[in-house]
Nucleic acid binder design. Structure first.
Ligand SMILES: [Mn+2]
Ligand SMILES: [Mn+2]
Ligand SMILES: [Zn+2]
Ligand SMILES: [Zn+2]
Lengths: 158, 158
DNA sequence: CACGTTGTTGCGAATGGTTCCCATTACCCC
DNA sequence: GGGGTAATGGGAACCATTCGCAACAACGTG
């Protein structure tokens, strides 16, 4: 019994498409915006605002952190970007096209991206018994990864 | 197929038992500590440090917030208290004897306590496919509660 | 290709939540 | 009751994020 997941927000394939969309919405194609988008489309997911700021500043040194936050906010409004909370630290941002849930290890901080289907069991249980519809994208489900479990198990016996 | 959940940390039945344990551990039975414990044992769960501070200050007006944090931290070390993150705001604290997971509504902020068994489906899926052992106690699983879903569904059609 | 409108930026200050530091206080064992 | 030391009040520091504002820069229009 598979569950219908929400449709992925329409997917802009590249920086220019997104900037076009920004314009449609009355916004402007700023250089900081463009560079930020380039970094978001580049490899490597789950970057914090500060990490993105550093990457952007490698190209345009005086883009301010608050500009990064503002642009991320705007891009989220447009459905291009989302953020997730993977634990105690700062939020992490990634393209909204990558739709997945998050499992995050409390011991080592490692984050696993999990297909939404993995959460179907819980989704069904919560819906059936409490009428609650879970959404595992925004906050990670915490726990302990395989490596840490092995390490901890090894430490437990002599 | 039920899953063995971790044993509940041994349960002190009252304020005095906890204070005895504090002493055993080399700590002292402070008045702020006692009043905080009284508030934690009182009805109402999921209180923030600030809420607890207000309650404590109703009895002992100049207990400082930082003292509340320090005592909560100490009580967590002793296994008497735990905290949970239910969304964006401050953490909430409750007795460790109440062992449950959390479901928190992103629309209205309502929090449901869910028996750990509710998470068995996800636990099994994560363990089997990723070797990841989830723990739904520390971070809530977000989503939308029945009431908000109904409200949002009603708003969707005319 | 000026020009004006208005969205955006840099910067710093403010915020919320939590932790840290330190001089003073107060438990509690003798 | 006095001494050793855990705990406290107070405030500063901290981290992640948001705000306010004056200067700036996109970009549609002429
Ligand atoms: Mn968030
Ligand atoms: Mn926590
Ligand atoms: Zn790990
Ligand atoms: Zn709700």
């Amino acid at each position: 019994m598979t569950v219908e997941h929400r449709p992925a927000p329409r997917a802009p394939v590249g920086v220019d498409e997104v900037l076009a969309r920004v314009r449609e919405a009355g916004g402007r194609a700023t250089t900081s915006r463009r560079i930020l988008l380039e970094r978001l489309f580049a490899e490597g997911s789950h970057k914090t605002a500060e990490e993105l700021a550093h990457e952007v500043q490698a190209v345009a040194p005086d883009v301010h952190l608050s500009t990064i936050y503002r642009n991320l906010e705007e891009l989220e409004r447009l459905g291009v970007v989302t953020h997730a909370h993977l634990g105690h630290g700062p939020a992490t941002y990634h393209l909204a096209t990558e739709t997945h849930g998050h499992l995050s290890c409390e011991s080592c901080g490692a984050t696993l991206e999990a297909p939404l289907g993995l959460f179907d069991g819980l989704a069904e249980a919560a819906r059936e018994s409490l009428g609650f519809e879970i959404d595992p994208r925004h906050f990670a489900v915490l726990g302990h990864c395989a490596a840490c479990r092995a390490r901890e198990a090894a430490a437990a016996d002599g």
